[in-house]
Amino acid sequence: MATRIGLTLAAAAFALACLAACSPLTALNALSPANGVHASTGLAFGANPRLKLDIYRPATVTAASPVVVFFYGGNWTSGQRESYAFVGRALAARGFVVVIPDYRLYPEVSYPDFLDDAAQAVAWTAKHIAGYGGDPNQLFVMGHSAGAYNAAMIALDGRWLAKQGMTPAALRGWIGMAGPYDFLPVENPTARPVFHFPDTPAESQPVNHLDGPRVPALLIAASSDRLVNPARNTGGLAKRLRARGVSVEEIYYDGVNHATLVASLATPLRKLAPTLDAVDKFVRKHTTLIQVQAM
């Protein structure tokens, strides 16, 4: 047991050293095994050159798999799908088909244009994912930070999917990690122009969209998150959703912060928090997935 713990600590120390030496996301991708996972990259889902997505799927499946569309964070001003290959690989290794789309960023666009992009990616997935081994009837949206906001708005505010001929009722569930769901007035100086501060519309807030279909939610946050207040955002939204009869699972982890919460999905940092297990359990709970061996 002591040897096993020592190896775990050594692996974590090595991973953290790599994170410090180069781009953190690049390091996580380099240290995340791709064996057993097939990737299809650079698939266009819209006319804009940025609207492309990557798909990660298990190398072998015996039935159509649940599908998770993952939106990355970056304050709606930065980010690219290739940087989150570790997320796609982690979830695909658990038997899911994972879609990671890009979306337009500020200053090219501002609220609410990126939500149209997110809805377009979900609609493309629903239409085409069967060709990649996914079950469009077992569809989830997921995101971290700004991406969790995107996922929340897709699941809670029916306007965006309605433009694509869909409804949030088509979702089996949604997963938010360290998401900003209630942030008026906008305090983050980077996010202010994205949301037209000081004229940010109240309708931009996920907490103000609670009357739609009751889509089950898994809300995960870092207890010590200093960028997005977990009590106000994760806790506040969870409380309001439950009051409306929505099934909500609410988890807080002590061993991570705002950034390392999503990093804990990667192979070398999973000892920081059981985030991947929580996502895996939630998806399986809300699907008819044939059980596969966890990796």
Rank of each mutant, 00 (worst) to 15 (best):
Y106G: 00
L91G: 01
S32N: 07
N29H: 04
S83H: 12
A47D: 12
L51M: 09
N35M: 02
V109R: 06
R57G: 04
P107C: 09
F45Q: 07
V97W: 00
Y106D: 01
S110V: 08
G79M: 11
F96Y: 08
L105F: 06
V61H: 11
A30I: 01
L53N: 12
V68P: 11
S110F: 08
R50V: 09
A44N: 15
V68R: 13
A92K: 00
G42F: 01
P49I: 04
S32G: 00
L31R: 09
V109E: 05
N35C: 00
N35L: 02
T26S: 11
F70D: 03
F86H: 06
F71Y: 13
F45V: 05
L31E: 11
A39D: 07
E82I: 13
L53C: 15
D54I: 07
Y111F: 11
R81H: 05
T41S: 13
A34C: 08
G36H: 02
Y111V: 08
K52L: 14
L25A: 07
H38F: 01
R104Q: 03
G74I: 05
P58I: 04
W76F: 10
L28S: 02
S65I: 03
L43K: 12
Y56D: 01
A85H: 05
D54K: 02
G36T: 05
Y103G: 01
A93Y: 01
A63E: 12
N48T: 00
S78H: 13
L28C: 03
A30L: 11
D54L: 04
F96I: 02
V87L: 13
F71W: 05
P58K: 03
G73W: 01
K52N: 15
A30W: 04
A47E: 10
V69E: 00
A44W: 12
G74A: 11
T41H: 02
T60Q: 10
V69W: 06
S78D: 14
L105V: 05
V69C: 08
T77E: 14
A63C: 10
L31Q: 11
W76Q: 13
N29I: 03
G42K: 04
R104L: 00
T60I: 06
D102I: 15
G42R: 12
V67W: 08
Y106P: 01
S40H: 09
F70A: 03
A92S: 03
A27P: 04
R50E: 06
E108K: 02
N48I: 00
V97R: 08
P66E: 13
G73E: 06
V37T: 06
A92I: 02
L53E: 14
